[in-house]
Design a protein around this nucleic acid. Sequence first.
DNA 1: CGCGGCTTTGATGTTCATCAAGTAAAGTGG
DNA 2: CCACTTTACTTGATGAACATCAAAGCCGCG
Lengths: 231, 231
Amino acid sequence: MADKKKICICENCEFRDVVFSYLDESSIDQLCENKEEQAFRKGEVINHEGEKISNFKYLKSGLVKLYRRTSTGEEQVITITRPFEFVSNMSIFSEERYQYSVSALEDSVVCLVKLEFIKELFMRNGGFAMGLLSKISMINDKIIAQTLDIRQKNLIGRVAFVLLYFTNEIYNSRVFDLPVSRKEIADYIGMSTANVIRTLSDFKKEGIIRVFGKTIEVVDLNKLEIISKRG
Amino acid sequence: MADKKKICICENCEFRDVVFSYLDESSIDQLCENKEEQAFRKGEVINHEGEKISNFKYLKSGLVKLYRRTSTGEEQVITITRPFEFVSNMSIFSEERYQYSVSALEDSVVCLVKLEFIKELFMRNGGFAMGLLSKISMINDKIIAQTLDIRQKNLIGRVAFVLLYFTNEIYNSRVFDLPVSRKEIADYIGMSTANVIRTLSDFKKEGIIRVFGKTIEVVDLNKLEIISKRG
DNA sequence: CGCGGCTTTGATGTTCATCAAGTAAAGTGG
DNA sequence: CCACTTTACTTGATGAACATCAAAGCCGCG
């Protein structure tokens, strides 16, 4: 019996530091009983827009995109994000149904906790509530700022922005495999696929990046930053 | 002494229904002691981007715009909003400083509550915390959805959107005085001032709206909705 | 009455989407 | 494992959408 606690993986989960730091041992135990892990393969959908929200979900490992379908039927990518930036959790306290879809860009693991349990915790544990609110606010702020940043730039500025985003925020490396198609980049920055490709070709010709299929190497980070700011 | 409570205006404030509904009499009393009302005249700035956040503020009456300055120095309008949709409150739990500026588009009254007091309430009153989180989430969701909606439309769709926004969300009337300049509309929808004016002129010529200086009458609401959806 | 800011309109050029046609890459079934 | 099919990518040419520039009209305010 004494060993049971030790087995619980939640105790060691990195996410504990982010939101669950205020929970004592018994709450963590409860959390373990109420949670479930789900693995998703690249391309699989984690939440569907319009689906009823019944779980609090966060990304444990992997990479996901948040997106929605516009009234004219195209896909609009809202953001691309890593653990432990949330996944489904954005509207769980304001809406009954998901407003956005989420799908895995790389193989991903998601933790699910019954929404009722989270709400109960939220009600009785002020520290947890504060931590969760801060986290949700931060994520929302980030998305808003990012969307406004993109809106303000022109084509090449936006493409530069995306490359910098992958370099600095997602991979922390100047060399990386693009986890998205050219079309998905286009849907993300609100430009046509053809022009995204054209701009990447231009960057290649100017020696700012090197491209080997899906693999990208950022050669001149500085120039990319100038283009992103000015554009 | 028994009369003192009755004098407290917070007890009757409409905002109580929105977030403070979980507070008992003594908390409301404390709230009264910790709050302050401020009046702003049309054009005055309520928060400055970059300023330190020390109060929880909400709009009691009036109309405000939320905006920021871009890296190239232009003004970018994020949203225009009525009571009791928040004002400064978006990032108070995630940031130390305001990320956006807020200014009054009409004469406005803002209520200020010491941030520490709100945080203390939040910690010890789960219902209050839940109400506040829901409200903040809703506001963030709205802003994100609005920004994405606008991004997806073309020029005339965006102008139609703004007119519908004022008609349906802000004034609940097909006749209203524009509280913003043409340039502010342009900054809101991310288009040039000249083209906003041009589009308004086109709508006028087609008999969709009537314009008398700052006063606008929406004649054909239906056509405006079609343009906004399709655009 | 004159000045300065906001508005309006036209003319011009840039930026970007769209279309089309071709190539590479990635599945799919035998 | 190879032929076949489909999907993603690439490039050029064209036209539409939009910004920018400039000049003129309007309105409020001192």
